[in-house]
């Protein structure tokens, strides 16, 4: 995974030219990587049961759904917007899938319904943010309550299950010794990494995030790209919802509740700049593994969940602060 998606750090006018190693080390992704190594070491010392690739891969499947949404969320945040409704979209699309299947339609139709609902929800967010010029941060707080509320209304407190056996247990299907959700995550990461780092579209997403007005003047179709990104969020959430449905063999309205925090956390840990314009897919890719290592390491060491919540909250805040400081030192 080599990725040069971030714009080259501009050398400051007055300051002497920074040595190359320093520039690399000062990239937030480098921090993520160092943290990843430290966390792996720490977790291995914490519990003798941790250091087992099969176990870590299996644990990754529990977070892969959030991580996949986190990859798309990275692009959304780089473009200067945010979408907190991902977890709720997962729940609603998964519930729609379950209800459609339960109503007697074939599973392919149910999957289609779920994907279409993802598009529709993403589009709904996009309309509110772009057509009505509302701030995405608060719009998606509204839609996260709304989407999960609708999931609760249509599915009640029931868990919907009895899916056909071929659909169930995707996390125990392996390709090249890797569970399929992990492969999906890696493929999405690779695709988005290439788009962001190697295409005109990717460059435009950075430009929009740096200055939407300047991007508009430069002839970039800001609204169309942002709409696409929000719809992408919806589709990714729906795919993640389907993966979860397959993994659990059942769906319920409270699926992935509170996961918006994890999604944002993954993106922030990966060094994406909360104000847009900067960030990378490789960062998010590493951060997803970091989160899994930390959470799994603490769980297998039987560290109470109380401490885990505290650590996750602290991590989020520290990572934003650190990213912020790094960016303000290396540029402008």
């Amino acid at each position: 995974m080599s990725d040069t998606s971030i714009p080259k750090s501009a050398v400051q006018d007055a300051a002497p030219v920074r040595p190359r190693w320093k520039t690399i080390l000062l990239r937030p992704e480098a921090m993520t990587f160092v943290l990843l190594i430290l966390a792996t070491l720490g977790a291995s010392l914490l519990s003798p049961f941790f250091a087992d690739i099969a176990y870590i891969l299996e644990s990754f499947t529990y977070y892969s759904e959030y991580a996949i949404v986190g990859l798309v969320l990275t692009l959304v945040i780089i473009s200067g917007e945010i979408d907190l409704s991902g977890a709720a979209m997962m729940a609603l699309s998964a519930c729609l899938f379950g209800i459609t299947y339960q109503a007697g339609y074939p599973i392919s139709v149910a999957i289609l319904v779920s994907l279409i609902s993802g598009v529709a929800m993403g589009w709904f967010n996009a309309i509110l943010v772009i057509r009505f010029k509302l701030p995405s941060i608060i719009v998606t707080i509204g839609t996260l309550t709304l989407f999960r509320g609708i999931a609760q209304v249509i599915a009640g407190d029931r868990s919907i299950s009895k899916f056909p056996s071929w659909f169930v247990g995707i996390d125990y299907q392996y390709v090249l010794n890797l569970p399929i959700p992990v492969i999906v995550f890696c493929v999405v990461a690779l695709a988005l990494g290439v788009i962001l780092g190697g295409t005109v579209l990717g460059r435009q997403i950075y430009q929009i995030g740096t200055s939407a007005i300047a991007a508009q003047h430069a002839g970039i179709r800001v609204n169309r790209i942002k709409t696409g990104l929000f719809i992408g969020m919806g589709v990714a959430s729906s795919v993640a919802g389907l993966l979860t449905a397959s993994r659990l063999a059942s769906v319920r309205y409270d699926l992935a509740s509170g996961a918006e925090l994890q999604m944002v956390l993954i993106v922030m840990l990966g060094g994406t700049y909360i104000f847009g314009g900067r960030g990378s897919i490789i960062g998010t890719f590493l951060a997803a593994w970091l989160l899994v290592i930390i959470a799994t390491g603490m769980t297998v060491a039987n560290i109470p969940i109380n401490a885990q919540l505290t650590v996750l909250g602290l991590l989020l805040i520290i990572s934003i602060i650190a990213t912020n400081i790094i960016y303000s030192r290396t540029q402008r």
């Binding site: 049961f49 299996e58 644990s59 659990l248 059942s250 409270d254 509740s257």
Partner: peptide, 16 residues
């Protein structure tokens, strides 16, 4: 929540 116990159970399997 329905799924929150799963990582804990996996961890216990891992712990033997």
């Amino acid at each position: 929540e329905a799924t929150s116990q799963i990582p804990f159970i996996t961890a216990q399997i891992q712990r033997g």
